[in-house]
């Protein structure tokens, strides 16, 4: 359990939990067991009860700020007002990690409230790097960029997503938030090799791993996986998590659950599952003589 005054404390290489409004009060008042919490940045732009609860929680746990709306892939560049609010939120909460997505959601001043897929081209790569630079300059720190779940690919994409993400990290110095559920979802939808995806990422750049549940939908007679964060982590995603830990070493790992949010104890249970796998990886690493720097 984190000590008081956890501000600025790094997010540990243990299993954290996505903090959602229905659990705020319980956590602020009872300090249940959890290694760290992650919140959606945009939910804390104003003041009021939500922020007051989070500041109380912040005193006891390490925190990660996960943005969903900065739109790093926008051809029109970043929304300066939005970036300023992210910076203000970060200054107030002093999170151990800050992350965003490899996607776009803003076009001609309209916010499309989803993580929309980018054409993976040289032009898009240059643009995303420029926007990540702008974000890191404004926040004066490294950020992590997460791979999205996608349901389509553009004809004119020329760069595999893992190469694109690795290139963004290499050119901007940002880290990678490796969402293994998103890799699994996209790999199933596009017939990619999920393990080859993991092999394509630079281990040192990976700063966090996400775990979540997905849904299987039949659309036009074919089965499509949808990233809905509405259930327990699926078994093949746990397997992919093990493979990611083998390759990257222990990293902060997060349980995300956003629709049909269950009792907090269910999230603790999922986090405990992730923690056992992190522990197993540390043990394996010791037996096999190391090779992974344990960040914990």
């Amino acid at each position: 359990m984190a000590a008081r005054h956890a501000k600025r404390s790094p997010v540990p290489a243990h299993a954290g939990i996505g903090l959602r409004f229905p659990h705020q009060r319980l956590i602020a008042e009872q300090h249940p067991a959890a290694a760290w919490f992650e919140v959606h940045t945009e939910n804390y732009f104003g003041g009021g009860t939500r922020l007051n609860y989070l500041e109380r929680i912040r005193e006891h746990y390490a925190l990660s700020l996960h943005g969903t709306a900065l739109s790093l892939g926008s051809a029109e560049g970043l929304d300066a007002a939005h970036l300023k609010r992210v910076a203000e939120c970060a200054a107030r909460l002093e999170p151990g990690l800050i992350s965003e997505h490899l996607s776009f959601s803003r076009v001609d001043g309209i916010y499309y409230a989803d993580l929309l897929p980018l054409p993976l081209t040289e032009e898009a790569l240059n643009l995303v790097c420029r926007n990540v630079d702008a974000m890191q300059d404004a926040l004066k720190r490294q950020v992590l960029v997460e791979n999205p779940s996608t349901y389509l690919q553009f004809r004119h994409s020329t760069i595999p997503e893992w190469e694109f993400l690795s290139a963004v990290a290499a050119r901007t110095g940002c880290g990678i938030l490796c969402d293994v559920n998103n890799i699994y979802v996209s790999a199933c939808n596009h017939r990619w090799d999920a393990l080859a995806y993991l092999d394509g990422l630079p281990p040192d750049a990976v700063g966090e791993i996400h775990l979540a549940g997905h849904a299987k939908c039949v659309i036009g007679g074919v089965s499509v996986l949808i990233d809905n964060h509405g259930s327990r982590v699926a078994e093949p995603v746990w397997d992919l998590f093990d493979a990611a830990l083998r390759r990257f070493g222990p990293k902060p790992a997060l349980i995300e659950w956003d629709t049909d949010i269950p009792e907090f104890s269910v999230l603790q249970d999922e986090a405990a599952r992730a923690e056992r796998r992190l522990r197993a990886e540390r043990a394996l690493d010791r037996i096999s003589g190391g090779g992974h720097a344990d960040a914990a």
């Binding site: 389509l152 939808n189 036009g220 074919v222 499509v224």
Partner: peptide
């Protein structure tokens, strides 16, 4: 602009 895939473009 969308490559042929699992679901047709409109559905995706």
């Amino acid at each position: 602009l969308i490559a042929p895939g699992l679901a047709c473009a409109d559905e995706a």
